[in-house]
């Protein structure tokens, strides 16, 4: 028998909305489950029947080809049927029409909705309005839990632990859902987090969440086991909170020269897609310290685990 009867099941959630909801043991359960799923991708038949007969819909109201593909492939590898909602929504009637659309789709017999939406809180709103499972694939500047989970997975895989690791998150922390979700997850698993960037993008207010804030990257460069470089978003470059691109690269860009002053085993992470030459120099992105492609591979296993677990919680009879 492979089924272990635990006194109290660790995972009981039908939705994955934000890292704030999760206890440490729940995060670790997802990572452990993902480890089991990683092996599926190495088989000759890269598929298991765990979600056979289930329907997963990806609803992306904000373009992200890679995240959508990762979720779709994850669902397909679990044997689910996958449909993709192709619709761009006008920003004027977000709330109402999102729920309307979702209820229509749900009426077709959908089991899991994967939502990417520009409005913060939309995934939570959706989860309160439909009966099926909801997985947040990014809502505004609020949360992107599967990105945080795949980063934690990659970090644990290459360092063997998360407790006590010194992690830097560098860039536009203020506007980044990746940074917020990573920060929550890292702190819950016992890492020490430093947020690095110019004061306009990394305000002191983040100290209240339990992180250290630092505006001088070069002064702290050598301390970290892991450096997560955030993507510079094009629309932000135009705004007044952003320094000039040249100034940003000069003070906060990761390049070969800065890498030499890091710990030799430092892990350089990036949620992708990379602006080569801005936050990350090409030779660093492709170098031995970079985990960028490994993060993408692990993302698939982590999303399989998440889809599997929320579906189990929804369909299984709790002990």
């Amino acid at each position: 028998m492979t089924i272990t009867e635990t006194q109290r099941p660790v995972w009981m959630r039908r939705h994955l909305l934000q890292m704030d909801d999760l206890a440490r043991e729940e995060i670790e359960h997802i990572l452990d489950t993902a480890e089991g799923f990683k092996e599926v991708s190495t088989r000759s038949v890269k598929k298991v029947p765990a979600l056979r007969g289930r329907v997963v819909v990806t609803m992306f109201f904000e373009e992200s080809t890679r995240t959508r593909m990762s979720f779709e492939l994850a669902a397909q590898r679990l044997g689910a049927d996958v449909i993709d909602l192709q619709e761009r929504m006008s920003s004027t009637k977000k709330g109402e029409s999102l729920i309307d659309t979702a209820r229509n789709i749900e009426a077709m017999g959908v089991d899991v909705m994967v939502l990417r939406h520009p409005a913060a809180g939309s995934a939570t709103h959706l989860s309160q309005s439909v009966g099926c499972c909801v997985v947040n694939a990014g809502d505004g500047q609020h949360a992107h839990p599967t990105q945080a989970l795949l980063d934690l997975f990659t970090l644990r895989e290459s360092k063997g632990r998360i407790d006590g690791l010194k992690v830097a998150i560098v860039g536009d922390v203020a506007h980044s859902r990746v940074a917020r979700s990573n920060l929550r997850g890292l702190l819950k698993l016992g890492a020490e987090v430093t947020l690095v960037g110019p004061p306009t993008l990394v305000p002191r207010a983040f100290e209240a969440l339990g992180a250290r804030v630092c505006h001088d990257f070069d002064a702290v460069l050598g301390e970290f086991d892991v450096i997560n470089m955030l993507r510079v978003q094009n629309e932000r470059i135009e705004s007044s909170v952003f320094p000039s691109v040249r100034e940003y690269v000069q003070f906060f860009g990761m390049n070969a020269e800065r890498l030499r002053r890091c710990r030799p085993d430092v892990l350089i992470m990036h949620p992708g897609p990379v602006n080569r030459g801005i936050e990350l120099a090409a030779d660093v992105a492709d170098g031995p310290n970079s985990s960028i492609l490994r993060q993408v591979t692990n993302g698939l296993a982590v999303r399989m685990a998440v889809l599997f677990l929320v579906n189990q919680a929804a369909t299984g009879h709790a002990a």
Partner: peptide
């Protein structure tokens, strides 16, 4: 061999399923 994902009672064993992975 971990057969968790292939069980025909996967929908009724609930969240207790623990995936150990096939090696």
């Amino acid at each position: 061999l971990d057969i968790t994902l292939y069980r025909d009672d996967l929908s009724t064993i609930g969240p207790n399923a623990m995936l150990r992975g096939t090696e």
